[in-house]
C-alpha cells in the first residue's frame, strides 16, 4: 500500500528537493526535463516483467531446465510407486504436485540467480522503483514460467497415466496453488541467493511454509479426479485462496527487507 502512495507522492517530493538545493539546481531542473513525471508502479512492473519474459524467450534457460526436470520426476515416480491400477488415483495427484513443486523450485532459484549473476538486481535497485514493484514483477514472471511448465506437463501426465486431468477444475486448482507457491518462493529465492549453501536453503525455507498449499492442492486435485462433488472440494480451494491472499500481502510488504545490503 505504501508503494502506491509513494509513487503518487513523488512529484511534490521532486519539487521540494529542487527548492532545497537552491539556485544551482536550476541547472538540474533544465537537465532533468528529460526525466520528468515519475513512472507509475504498474508501468515499472510491466517493464521488469517484459524484460524477464524477453530474456527467457531468447534463452529458454528457465523453462527448459524446469520442463526436463519435471518430466524426469514423473518418470522416476512411475517406477517408485508402480503407478497403475488402483494405486493410481490415490498417488497420482501427489506425484503431479511434487513434480510441479520440485521443477518450480528449480525455476525460482534460476530466475533469481540470473539477477544476481551480473549484478542486475543492483541495476534495478538504482532505479527509482518501489521494492514492491520488483517483487510483483518477479513474482508474476515466476508464476508465468511455472504455469507454462504446468500447461505442458499436464497433457503429458494425462497421456502417461491415462487420467482426465485436463479439466477447468484442475486448471483452477493448479493456478491457485501455483500463485501461493510462487509468491512465497519469490521472497525466499531472494533470501536464499545471498546465503551460504544457497541451493539447499531455498527448499529448506520454502517447503515447510508451503505445506498447506501442497496438502490443499493434492487433496483438491484428488477430489476432482475422483469425481467428488464441488461442495467437498471448495474448502480446499478456499484454503488456497486464503493462503494466496495472505502471502501475497505479507511477501509484498517484506520484500524490501530482503533485497539490497
Amino acid at each position: 500500500m505504501r508503494a502506491f502512495r509513494r509513487s503518487i507522492d513523488v512529484t511534490p517530493g521532486l519539487g521540494r528537493s529542487f527548492v532545497a538545493m537552491g539556485d544551482g539546481l536550476t541547472a538540474a531542473i533544465s537537465i532533468s526535463r528529460a526525466a520528468v513525471g515519475p513512472p507509475s508502479f504498474f508501468r515499472q512492473v510491466g517493464a521488469i516483467l517484459w524484460k524477464d519474459l524477453a530474456v527467457e524467450l531468447r534463452t529458454k534457460d528457465i523453462l527448459s531446465s524446469m520442463l526436463v526436470f519435471g518430466l524426469i520426476v514423473l518418470v522416476i515416480f512411475n517406477f517408485a510407486f508402480e503407478l497403475r491400477g488402483e494405486n493410481l488415483i490415490l498417488v497420482a495427484p501427489g506425484v503431479l504436485w511434487v513434480a510441479f513443486v520440485f521443477a518450480g523450485i528449480l525455476g525460482l532459484g534460476r530466475s533469481m540467480a540470473q539477477e544476481k549473476e551480473r549484478s542486475s538486481m543492483e541495476g534495478l535497485l538504482l532505479c527509482p522503483v518501489d521494492r514492491g514493484a520488483i517483487f510483483v514483477a518477479k513474482m508474476l514472471g515466476n508464476l508465468i514460467f511455472i504455469v507454462i511448465l504446468e500447461a505442458i506437463t499436464l497433457p503429458i501426465f494425462a497421456a502417461f497415466f491415462n487420467l482426465p486431468v485436463l479439466t477447468p477444475g484442475v486448471g483452477l486448482i493448479v493456478v491457485l496453488g501455483t500463485l501461493g507457491f510462487a509468491s512465497v518462493g519469490t521472497l525466499f529465492a531472494a533470501i536464499a541467493i545471498n546465503t551460504r549453501a544457497r541451493e539447499v536453503m531455498l527448499p529448506i525455507l520454502l517447503f515447510p511454509i508451503i505445506v498447506p498449499v501442497i496438502i490443499a492442492s493434492v487433496k483438491a486435485t484428488a477430489f476432482v479426479l475422483d469425481g467428488k462433488p464441488w461442495a467437498e472440494i471448495w474448502p480446499w480451494v478456499n484454503l488456497l485462496i486464503a493462503f494466496d491472499v495472505i502471502f501475497l500481502a505479507v511477501c509484498f510488504v517484506t520484500f524490501e527487507y530482503v533485497i539490497g545490503e
Binding site: V211, P212, I215, P235, I246
Partner: peptide, 9 residues
C-alpha cells in the same frame, strides 16, 4: 493456515 489444513486433512 497449517493448523487448518492438517485438521481438514
Amino acid at each position: 493456515i497449517i493448523f487448518l489444513s492438517v485438521f481438514l486433512w
